[in-house]
Each structure stands twice: as C-alpha cells, then as structure tokens.
Nucleic acid binder design. Structure first.
Lengths: 245, 245
DNA sequence: CCGAGCTTGTGATCGAATTCTCGAAGTCTG
DNA sequence: CAGACTTCGAGAATTCGATCACAAGCTCGG
C-alpha cells in the first residue's frame, strides 16, 4: 500500500482543483454516480486530457471504461484541498467590498466561515454585518488565536494593505487573500493571493482594444455593433490568467 | 520605418502590464523621473529580468544606464492597455457584490466607468446605487448600444450567470468579467475572465493544509499556533495563478 | 468466457514562460 | 575625454505546463 506516490501536485493543477470540485458538486445533485473525464471537462471548461492528468496527480481514482465515482472523487478533492472542515476566515476592512464579502453566502457553502470582522475605523467598530459585529484592529491577535483563524482577507484601501498584511501575519495567519489594489509582501512561508478588479478589467481592455483596432490607437470611439459572429482573429479570448504579488 | 516589430505580446505579459501600470502610477506621484527595471520589479513583486523582457515586448522604451522614463512608459502602457479613455462598463446583478462593485471608487480612477446597472429582480429596479439607478434586464440592448458598452461584469448568483453572459454577448458586449461561481461559455471572439472568491480561498487552503500537514489528513483540528517562523518547506507560497473558464 | 467498446492513466512531445547571462549603450567623474 | 559604472535588450538554457497518442484495464453482451 504505502504512499510511494510522489506528493507533488503542480501549481497549475492546484488552481484547477476548485473548478473540478465545483462541477462535481453540481453533478452530485443529480442522480449520476459516475462521470467521465470528458463530461467533467465540458462542465469545467477544460479538455479531457488535462482533467485526467490533473486528477491523476491525486491518485488513480478513476475506473477505466467507466469514469470517476462522483462521491469518491469529491471526497478526495475536498480532502486534498482541506475542505472537510470549514476554515475560519477573518475579513479586515469593512467598506463596500468587505461588507459584501462578509455577507456573501457562497463562503459558508464552500469550506469557509467568516469568523471575524475587523476595521481600523472607530466609526465602523461595533457595526453588525451578518451575524458578526466589527471589531477594532487591536483585537486581531486575540481573535486569530481564539478562533483558530489561519486565513485573512484584506479588503481595505490600498494604502492600508501592507500594514494589515503585516498585522495578520504577526497575529498568526498563514494565508492571505488581498483584494486591495496594492502589492504587499509577506515573509516566506505565508501564502498570498491577490484579486484585483481593475487589473482584470485592464486585461480585458487590452484584448478588446486589439480586436477593434489591431494597432494601438485609442481615439476610435465605439465598438461597431453588428457582426457578432466574426472576431476570432488574433487574440486568445477566453482565458483567465495569473498575477504574482 | 514600419512596424516590422512583431505585435505579439505573450499573454503572461499582458496580465502583468496592469501591475507595472499601477506601480508606475505610484512612482509618478513622487519626483522621480526615471525608474530602473529593478526598482520597478521590487514595487510590483517581480524580478528585474522579467520586467525588462515584458517591457521589451512593447518596444525599446528604456535607456541603458538610466532606466525607463516614468511618464513615457506610463503613456506607452496605458496606450497598449487601451486606458487612454474610460471604458464604459455594465454591471449585471446588484446584490451585495454588485452594489459594492458599483460603488467601488477604484473603477473610475483606472480607466473604467460604471455606465449601467441591471438586475432581473423587479424589486431592485429603480434603486439608486451611486449616481446610477438600476435598470431592468430588457433595457440591456438599448443601454449597451446607447452607451457604447463593451465590457460586462456579471455579479449575479451562479444559476443566472450563463443567461446573463448570453444576453450581454447578444447585446454586443465583447468582454465579460464573471464574478459568479459558475462556469460560463461564450462564443469565440468574446473575452472572458473570471474571479471566484471561493476558488481563491480553496487554493490558499490547499497550501495551508500542506504546510501544517504534509500528507492529506484532515482530522487534525486546529492549526497549531506557535511556530511562526518555520514553514518554508515544500509549497510555492506567494503566487497567484491561472484559471481557465 | 471471449471479444467489442469505453475510458482511464501516463509516457512522449511540443510549446510557452521564466531565468540566466552578457554584450551594447548610455551616464558620470575626474 | 577616458575609464568606471550602471542598466537595458535579447539570445540561450531551463523549467513548467499543455497536448497527443496509445496501451492497460474495466464492463457488458452474447
């Protein structure tokens, strides 16, 4: 038996596991007991070969000629992603975005639980958001400790992001998701991912511009409506890709 | 003279241009007129060689021994990204997230303008968010046409995402940013990017788990606090990476 | 129990992205 | 004006990810 399997899952695969997970959750609500790599690929917007290779990193969980057992695969992926219990998450910064995140239901149904809300603004402290109330920043250490928080979400303005990140790390958080449009650095051993709205839009803008205007001109006003079918010209259209922070 | 320069900017580079842009904006507010690739790399969380290679795809805009002229480079990048004028953006779905996005100030300062808000819920139609009011979905065609909207943002629940995407494309939008936790497909020629909160957290969770627990066990209750310094063991910590949709 | 038909798992291949390295080209000092 | 110093630009090498192709293994019908 033994785990001689090389436990090295490529990073690119890790980022796709949540997609498979989400698709499998959908399938699990139907009556299908098994799913083929091809069908799973369709659902996740992937191709079958990639799905199989990704899943093979977890182990040989499929059955040739049949496919993958949905429940079993779900279990394996959630085990791999550490979703068998809810992670407590702290949200720092309760402006528009922070409040929206705090109220976001999808959180709780996908392996996470909002366990603490913090804001530096005294006017916000004490405010109820969802079923939590906002705490002051100096409560961070205590909250992280008492509630076993390992993941922090930064939803502050850009200029506070680095300080908040430092505070989170100092308090013991080892994973940070940064929504602030600022680059923050953390010590090695702490995971950091970032989501930046403006960045995403700017990437879209790049391809949008190139589509209507192969050079780099910007004075051309509006997009000519009309031809909805053409346009597969030079740009890689539907891909989301990477940022480092 | 001529543009024999191969106008092929790698996709990975495109996703980083916004980061350079953001960093350069910061620099522009200081008195520094030029910046070296190394300093820019520091600011953006990158390494100098990558920055130089990325920028070289835009052209030879640097001066050896000196660095890059901040203003000039900003201009070139914003031209390349199509940020010299504001793109009108439509936001569909004004729940927590949609409202937060609509009010998000960073939008307007980075090349975009919220130009229309739509929601299928009659109870939300007419509601004022920021300085716009929410319109019904059947106004989509008209709004996209009249306001030259090319980019649509989906902030609906998952089960509405595909329909909204179809409607946006039919109305003439050619770029879509999807915040709903669902996979949507669009015809070739339409750009699609996705941002999924739960996905990001799950990726963090993966590495978090591996850090405290090199195998795949999940029954271990809480993260052992204490050793904040160790842990640079096997995981690639601070990288954000790609999803395809 | 055997052969036909699926579907997985994975070695091999291809291509893209990152990193390394160093010559070229500029500035600055004395 | 010469030589030391800085920094870019880009070829070369390497790493990483995606795709291909097919043998292995499973089920099912007869």
């Amino acid at each position: 038996m033994a785990d001689s399997a090389p436990r090295t899952i490529p990073e690119a695969t890790v980022t796709r596991l949540p997609l498979y997970y989400r698709s499998l959750l959908q399938v699990a609500e139907t009556d299908l007991a098994t799913i083929s790599s091809e069908r799973l690929a369709d659902m996740a917007g992937m191709n079958a070969a990639k799905v199989r290779k990704d899943l093979s990193y977890l182990g040989s969980y499929g059955t040739r000629g049949v496919g993958y057992d949905v429940e079993y695969l779900l279990h394996q992926i959630s085990r791999e992603l550490g979703l068998t219990h809810d992670w407590p998450v702290a949200i720092v910064g309760l402006g528009n975005l922070g409040q929206a995140l705090a109220k976001y239901a999808g959180f709780s149904t996908r392996g996470f639980k909002v366990a603490a809300l913090l804001d530096a603004d005294p006017a916000k402290v004490g405010m109820a958001v969802g079923d939590l109330s906002v705490e002051p920043m100096d409560a961070l250490d205590r909250l992280v400790r008492d509630r076993s928080i390992a993941i922090g979400v930064i939803a502050t303005p850009a200029d506070a992001a680095q300080d908040v990140a430092d505070a989170l790390v100092a308090a013991g958080a080892r994973s940070i998701l940064n929504f602030a449009p600022a680059h923050v650095t953390v010590e090695p051993g702490v995971s950091l991912r970032k989501v930046d709205l403006a960045t995403e839009l700017q990437i879209l803008s790049f391809y949008q511009l190139r589509r209507s205007n192969p050079s780099g001109d910007t004075t051309s006003g509006d997009t000519t409506s009309g031809d909805t079918t053409s346009g597969d010209e030079a740009m890689p259209p539907q891909v989301s890709s990477a940022q480092v922070s």
